[in-house]
Each structure stands twice: as structure tokens, then as C-alpha cells.
Write a protein that binds this DNA or RNA. Structure first.
Lengths: 336, 336
DNA sequence: TTGAAAGCGCTAACAA
DNA sequence: TTGTTAGCGCTTTCAA
């Protein structure tokens, strides 16, 4: 098995006590220069590394944070994770990434697991299936620091980081209207998610401000956020069976946007003259699509960084924090 | 701060000793049914969870495995990670994912960090910059179980899982030849990587078997695996300055393939009549590209699963393992 | 059937 | 300036 040398080993080898070695390693003022050198040299020689489990046990913290996202294959999340890591690693924290694949059951299991792993805090974007948050409230009430980003709950009082979803949706829908489209459908993830509500608001506002009516036949939800391709296909089925077909669709999510393109292709509608698409996506290959599509880009990296900064504030706070922030970052419209 | 109840708390509350509580919780035969029920009921009531740090300290293992990949945004790796998680989680292991972004420096830092975190084993795909593996050999020699997948070193004697890169490259190149192309360029990651060598072999073999000569002017490497878009652009620059331009390119990597498409687009060469592309990629949106491209798909999920199974064999082995396997999985050619 | 005590690696209060 | 000791949460040997 894999064993590293311990303070005890060093102490024995050097004829010192463990506390002297410990202090020497931590560069304590009480230890003489000679002893320090002796100890640090020997420690380097035997590749000494402090055992993090022992440290965690002692300090009652693990220097790790847990992340809960839908899936890392989603470019929004992989970019957010890069932002999270950039801050966390530089501050000496390990990051444990878990994926829900949009399932509430897996979200609960992941959160339980992370809590049991004694992470010092949690960074969460809710799964598409998550309507209630008792599994999180309980942990939060017991003092586990949590910061939400992207898909946030209303109930829990803590820091929350989002993009300006309403504005992004408004911009995308307005763009479709300016292109001359009047009948614009909207496909979204599960209706109860914060992002779905906000993006629906932006969509509605754009229609209304441009004198267009909101037709609820044109608004469709995918409770599994497009993880199941069939749910997207049946949504299209419904849209295609309407008396008056939509001319354009505003899609409210990364995976959904890509999924829509696949369905259009399957239906042989993937050409500039049929249905226009605009959607939220952080993918880096959208410009290679043909026909291409206008997209709403979220500052995922920045959101990840900001969420982590706020989480570390909570974790390292000397006194309980009672003032929480709700940060909203700007989106960018890429017209194609 | 976040505190859960401990065995000690339960023992005190129930007027028992900690050892009795411990045994009751582990369903030991020595404990009476009554006491067991008393303890387990109370434990459930107070949400008792064993402290994993204490457990790790005692057992000298952490029930966690470390993953080192280039980047999770790469579909090959995100699929491999899903495979890894599916096995690891079902066997009670936590997975810690780290990204090198193709940098050796970050690879070393990640590996050190994971070792210091006392993971029970490591799953690694080398970075594009990695030529020597002393940073891994040292840990391996000291007994840390390691399984390599995808980009594997020659030196270290352990389990290694790869796709049949030579075959995949052969198939893709042969396809381009069958399409009537004679001057086929090859763009690859850094030359010293196992995957680069194997894919070069497959490419060469396909040319030779079809009576075409191998022209080294047509073979280009990107030492940073395409993480820097400029290196890809300068490679194209060089190709475009040749007297006889290539008619097709076989690209040996996920990120590189996407990168090539971007460069072609930028050079206004992204149309069916200019340069044909075939490349390794596990992306799920290739069919939305226009013009599309033929791709070599690796069984990433299966590779992740297999690598994890072999790693857990090493970790949980009663006796030191001396027989190691080199598993090669089939690729699939998607003609578009 | 239950309890006392030691020990995993480390730090820190207290002693010397 | 260095050493002794207790304790973080848990399991396990030995004793009762």
C-alpha cells in the first residue's frame, strides 16, 4: 500500500519529539534555526506530506468544496467549473464535482454524499427536477455554507449568482422579432426553475413591447431539461400539429438548444428558410453550424469565480453572516 | 459552523460507551437486538453520519480516486468521466476531477495535490506537454495504484486502457482516400504522445497500402494539443504555403478537429469543394456542421468504466499485483 | 453483551 | 528552545 512518512517517523529518525517536528515544519518562532533546518531538510528528503485527513480531523474542516451541476459536458457548466477551480485551487481548496444529470434523486444523493464527505461548503445549480429544497435547507440550517448559481431556489437565504436571464431572453426574442418573425415559440426546461421563469418573462416582455400577443400554445416545457431527446421530439410534434406554425423558436437552455437543432435536422427543417432558432448556449462551435443560430452567452467563468469567492467568504467568516447578496451578471447576444 | 453528531454524542445521550455505539451501528453480532435498535433509531433521529476523515485516518484509505484529464469541456473526457463515475460511485468511491489544460506544470501540481489528498488511486490521461513521467513513477514506486487511459506512457508498468488509435486513424484516412483524395495532410497533438504515434502509424499505413507516398511536409504537430488556437493557425499557414496544397486533412484529436473547422471557417475554406476533413471526435454536434465531417468515435464511456474497474482491482487487491493488462477498445467510424 | 483503552497523524496548551 | 500530553472521531483488542 501507499504510505508516506509521518511526523512521527521524522521525529524518531531525528531523535526529536513530534511537537518539535510539527512546529519546525510550520516555521514556528519557538524553534531554533538549526533544528528547523535539520527537520525541513530531512522532511524534504523523505517526501514528507502532511496527512490531510489528520488535519481535517483536527481542524474540523476539509479544505474542500463540493459542486453540484447537471453535467460537465454542458459548456455552460464546464466554463463555470473552470472559474470555480481557478479561485478554489489558488486558495488551497480541493473541488469535488458531482453531476445530477437533471435528476432530483441524484441531486439528493450527491448532496448527502458531499456533506458526509465533510466538504466545507457547497456550490449548487439545481437539477431540472428539483422543485423543493428540503434536502438543502436541512444542511443549510445546520450551518453548511451554500452558494447557489444559475438555477437558484427562492427559499434558502444565502448568496445567489445568476446571469440576467430575463434580459438575455428579451434580447434574443427581440432579435427574432427584428428579423421579421411574428409567431415565435418558446421551449424551456422545467417550468419551476428560476431560469425558466426569468427567461419566460424576458420572452413575454419582448413580445408585448413589440405589440405581439403571447400565445400559450407556443410555450413548451421539457421537465427533464432535454436530457431525454424524446421529450424534445414530442414538443416539436405538438408545435408542428398547430394550425399556424411558428416561424421562429427561442430556446432557453444550452442542452435544449443543441437538442432542437438535432430535431430540426431529423425533421429536415434545418435550412435558412424554415424555422429560425435563437437560444441560450455557451457552446464554442455554434458558428460552425449551418444554418447558424443567434445565441445568448452567459459569463459562466465569471459566475463560477464570483460564486466561489462568496462561498469562501462564508466558509472563512469569523462571525455568522446574515447579509446575503444576489448578483446578476450581464449576458451577451451573439447574432448570427 | 457545520457540525454533525458523533458517536460520542450518541453514546453520552444513551448512556452507552462509544465502542458499543460503534458496534451497534456496524450491526455487530456481539450487540443485543434491543441496544442495536436503540442506537440506530437515535442515530437516524440526529442524522448521524460517520466522519470520513476519522475513518480515513483509521483505515489508512480515503475511498476516493483522483482523475487527471486535459479538460472536462472535451467530449471525449466528459464521456470518460461519466464512465468512471458510474463505477466509482456504485462502489462507494468519491471522484476528484482535475484538469491540466494540456500543461505539464499543472499535471504535476494536480498529481501532487491528489497524492497529498491521499486518494487511493489515480486515473490519468497525460497532458500534451508530458514527455517524461518521473513525477508519476515516484508515486507509483511508493505504491500508489495508477491506471492510465487514452494517452499512456511507455515507462510505467501498470494497467493501460486505450482505443485502437491506429485502426481508427487507418479507417479515417482510408475513407478520405476512397473519396478520391490523394494528398492528405495530417495534423496531430504533440509528437511524443502515445495517441499521436499510433494515429500517425494508422495514417501512414493507410497511405502506403493504397500506393500513396508519405510526405512529411503534410504532417504537422501542435505541441499544446490545440489549446492555443494560434498554433493551429500557423500550422494551416504552413500548409497553405506549400506548392501543392493538400486536398484533405486527417486530424488526430477532439479539440484539434473542432479547432481546424474554426480555422477553415476563418480562411473561408469551409465549403464542400475545398478541403475535406476527417478527425477523431466524440462531439455530439458534428452532424449539425455544414459541411459536415467524418469522425472517429472512441468508446469513451466504456474506457472510463474499464479503467476504473482495473484501478479498483489494484486498490482492493489483497496481494501486490504483478500482472498488468493493456486493453485496446475498438473505435467507430462515422461517415458524413 | 458491554466497556476501557489504544492508536491512526496532527496540533496546541501546558510543562520543563 | 524542546518535550509531554490530550484530543479531533472512529474501530478494535482486550478485559470484564
Amino acid at each position: 500500500m501507499f504510505e508516506s512518512s509521518t511526523i512521527k517517523d521524522i521525529a524518531r529518525a531525528l531523535g526529536l519529539s513530534t511537537s518539535t517536528v510539527s512546529r519546525a515544519l510550520r516555521d514556528s518562532y519557538e524553534i531554533s534555526a538549526g533544528t528547523k533546518k535539520l527537520v525541513t531538510d530531512y522532511a524534504r528528503k523523505v517526501h514528507y506530506r502532511p496527512n490531510p485527513n489528520a488535519l481535517s480531523l483536527k481542524e474540523r474542516k476539509s479544505k474542500s468544496i463540493g459542486i453540484v451541476v447537471s453535467e460537465v459536458a454542458n459548456h455552460y457548466f464546464s466554463q463555470a467549473i473552470n472559474g470555480i477551480e481557478s479561485i478554489a485551487n489558488s486558495r488551497g481548496y480541493t473541488v469535488i464535482i458531482t453531476q445530477t444529470h437533471e435528476s432530483l434523486e441524484r441531486e439528493i444523493a450527491n448532496v448527502q454524499h458531499l456533506a458526509a464527505r465533510s466538504v466545507d461548503g457547497l456550490l449548487i445549480s439545481l437539477s431540472a427536477e428539483t422543485e423543493t429544497t428540503s434536502h438543502l435547507e436541512e444542511l443549510h440550517d445546520r450551518g453548511l455554507p451554500i452558494v447557489f448559481f444559475d438555477r437558484i431556489p427562492e427559499q434558502i437565504n444565502t448568496h445567489k449568482i445568476t446571469a440576467d436571464n430575463a434580459k438575455g431572453a428579451f434580447d434574443a426574442t427581440t432579435h427574432l422579432i427584428r428579423c421579421g418573425h411574428k409567431r415565435i415559440a418558446h421551449i424551456s426546461s422545467s417550468a419551476h426553475l428560476s431560469i425558466s421563469k426569468e427567461r419566460l418573462d424576458g420572452y413575454t416582455k419582448a413580445l408585448t413591447e413589440n405589440g405581439l400577443s403571447v400565445d400559450h400554445q407556443y410555450i413548451k416545457n421539457c421537465p427533464h431539461g432535454g436530457m431525454i431527446q424524446e421529450e424534445l421530439e414530442s414538443v416539436f410534434q405538438e408545435l408542428m400539429e398547430l394550425e399556424v406554425l411558428p416561424e421562429a423558436i427561442f430556446v432557453a437552455g444550452d442542452r435544449l438548444t443543441i437538442g432542437c437543432m438535432h430535431v430540426l435536422k431529423k425533421l429536415n427543417l434545418l435550412n435558412p428558410t424554415s424555422i429560425a432558432i435563437a437560444g441560450f448556449s455557451n457552446s464554442d462551435v455554434l458558428d460552425l453550424f449551418n444554418p447558424s443560430l443567434t445565441s445568448v452567452f452567459q459569463p459562466a467563468f465569471d459566475m463560477g469565480q464570483l460564486a466561489t469567492i462568496k462561498l469562501l467568504e462564508l466558509i472563512e467568516a469569523k462571525y455568522p453572516v446574515t447579509e446575503f447578496e444576489r448578483k446578476v451578471l450581464n449576458t451577451q447576444l451573439f447574432i448570427r
